[in-house]
């Protein structure tokens, strides 16, 4: 059976987990191509106007896949850790997209607050495989996820580089710029118009949450008076504080226009950046964002950093 996985949303966080699991269970996988103009247009067309850009993009990736596969895989992401959640939109997404789709949709509930047993049961039900088999495949999948995370962190790679098996270890440099944002914005180079390579071409060294030790992020996130209950925002917030600790030259925070959770931590981040005197550039992306405008703002920001510490 051919199963389609959209290269959108949590793909950038969990890709090896799902691909190892599903292949282990005997599915043939089709992953949608990197986001392009056609996918963006499909998504914007299908998704409701009020949805944020990443959600629209996901509609687009599903649409690009639906004719090519027997079924699509989009889990209902609720929680990956006790006392945390994903954005409510990710919880509702399978119900939002399902009626529009030409292919069947597999959307197991991923709610790790309820423990792994329940996850296995969910996967086994939606994928129609025995629990034993799922448990075993899940074990492999988790190990490959961990290897992936470790590789990104140790070699300072982006998810796509780690997946492609890039082994070039990035050298730390003085000219570090902290990048903040959901992985689906940071690493989708169509949406952010090649931000990471743009920085590298100018001789800056991009640092992201995925390249930091998780313990450090967690320790930093715990500095807030109240723990954030969104795990992704906790990671962004924790890495923001870590970047300030590491004394990066500057910070770029990419978020989607009208993103709910980001609006909350955005304020906390900008207050902290101001306090520590670290320059912060906030970029909001939506389907109307033009390349020219984005680049002008980036250039101006980088020029300013350059002037502050000409190295």
């Amino acid at each position: 059976m051919k199963l389609g996985i959209p290269r959108a949303l949590l793909y950038y966080d969990h890709a090896p987990l799902w691909s190892t699991l599903l292949e282990g269970l005997g599915f043939e996988l089709v992953i949608s191509p990197p986001t392009n103009k056609a996918i963006l247009d499909l998504g914007v067309n299908r998704a409701p106007d009020e949805a944020c850009l990443p959600v629209k993009i996901c509609y687009g990736h599903l649409a690009a896949l639906e004719e090519k596969v027997d079924a699509l895989f989009l889990p209902r992401m609720v929680s990956e850790r006790p006392k945390t959640f994903f954005c409510p939109k990710l919880m509702g997404l399978p119900d939002m997209v399902r009626p529009e789709l030409a292919a069947e949709l597999f959307s197991p509930l991923v709610d790790l607050r309820r423990g792994k047993r329940e996850l296995i049961r969910q996967l086994s039900d939606t994928l129609d495989r025995g629990q034993r088999q799922v448990r075993e495949a899940l074990g492999f999948a988790e190990r490959s996820l961990n290897r992936f995370l470790k590789k990104m962190q140790e070699e300072k790679l982006t998810p796509l580089e780690a997946l492609a098996g890039r082994s070039l270890r990035r050298k730390a440099s003085q000219r570090q710029i902290g990048l903040l944002g959901h992985p689906y914005l940071l690493y989708d180079s169509f949406l952010n118009m090649g931000l990471i390579s743009f920085l590298e071409e100018r001789g800056f060294f991009p640092l992201t949450a995925q390249m930091l030790p998780p313990q450090q992020i967690q320790r930093c996130a715990e500095k807030l008076p109240k723990k954030l209950f969104w795990s992704m925002e906790a990671e962004i917030m924790g890495s923001a504080i870590a970047f300030l600790e590491e004394q990066v030259m500057g910070i770029i925070h990419i978020s989607s226009f009208a993103c709910g959770p980001d609006a909350m931590i955005g304020e906390l981040i900008s207050l902290r950046a101001k306090q520590s005197g670290t320059p912060l550039l906030e970029l909001n992306l939506d389907e109307q964002t033009g390349q020219a405008g984005l680049q002008t703002r980036l250039e101006a920001f980088l020029d300013m950093l350059q002037r502050r510490c000409p190295a």
Partner: peptide
């Protein structure tokens, strides 16, 4: 306050920091 997943549970935290940054001196009980 609140425990999520919706934003209300974090309102107080953000509001408290905003007030502080505006130099408003007050107790904020959540």
């Amino acid at each position: 306050g609140g425990v999520g997943p919706c934003r209300f549970g974090y309102y107080g935290q953000v509001q408290r920091e905003i007030l502080r940054s505006l130099g408003k001196d007050c107790d904020f009980l959540i």
